[in-house]
């Protein structure tokens, strides 16, 4: 095997564009997923019982099945119920739902981790429900759930590679396509692996740095 990376230079613009797509989809999935996950966690924790049960079932379904099967269902099954989406919107929607399920579980554990006494104390000094959530529960929770959120967000970056299977033109799909037409498939895969590895390591370090900063604010009781 000759390890020739010349092919990549010829296709650099395409690769950079695809990397941009990966990062955009990742950011969109993480952001929307976190927002949706927060609403789901709120609904399950403080919503009426039927809503809580329904959300619980949906979360269980999403967490219990492979992401790939969810994508197939959405992308190939969607048109049969009037939901015809292009690959990118389908990918973002799929990633968002998947992420929301996991984020909501993390956030729910966070809600449960805030000592009941603190919430009662807030009620005693006359905070409204929303004020309590915003001023007491959220800040305390943030510290508790930060490591798990960072982990999940990094995991999400890796999950974007799966989107290549439903032909989302992200990095994995574009790079392997270029690789196979240049007869340099393995080289392309190596570069791809390297990209993800470096990204994940960088994000991991940034995440730990953020956790440390958060810990230093004194919010952490340790």
């Amino acid at each position: 095997m000759t390890f020739d990376l010349g092919f990549i230079a010829q296709h650099l613009p395409e690769v950079i564009e695809a990397a941009g797509t990966t990062l955009m989809i990742w950011a969109a999935g993480a952001f929307c997923g976190l927002a949706l996950g927060f609403l789901v966690a709120l609904g399950r924790r403080y919503g009426p019982a039927p809503l809580a049960v329904l959300l619980g079932v949906i979360v269980e379904l999403l967490r219990g099945t492979p992401f790939l099967v969810q994508l197939f269902l959405l992308y190939f099954g969607g048109p049969f119920i009037g939901l015809s989406l292009d690959p990118i919107p389908a990918g973002v929607l799929g990633l968002t739902c998947y992420a929301a399920a996991y984020y909501s579980e993390i956030l729910r554990a966070g809600f449960d981790g805030v000592p009941a006494g603190h919430v009662e104390a807030a009620a005693c000094v006359g905070f409204s429900g929303w004020q309590t959530i915003r001023r007491i529960i959220l800040p305390e929770m943030a510290v508790l759930v930060m490591p798990a959120l960072v982990n999940m967000t990094i995991l999400l970056l890796k999950e974007t590679a799966v989107l290549s299977i439903i032909t989302v033109p992200e990095l994995t799909m574009v790079t392997s396509a270029i690789g196979s037409e240049s007869y340099a498939f393995v080289e392309a895969l190596f570069l791809l692996a390297l990209f993800y590895w470096v990204m994940v390591e960088i994000c991991g370090h940034l995440g730990r740095f953020a956790e440390l900063r958060l810990a230093r604010t004194g919010l952490v009781a340790r």
Partner: peptide, 10 residues
């Protein structure tokens, strides 16, 4: 650090 899909293909 590397997506499983990429590992499998590799």
């Amino acid at each position: 650090g590397v997506p499983l899909l990429v590992q499998l293909l590799l």
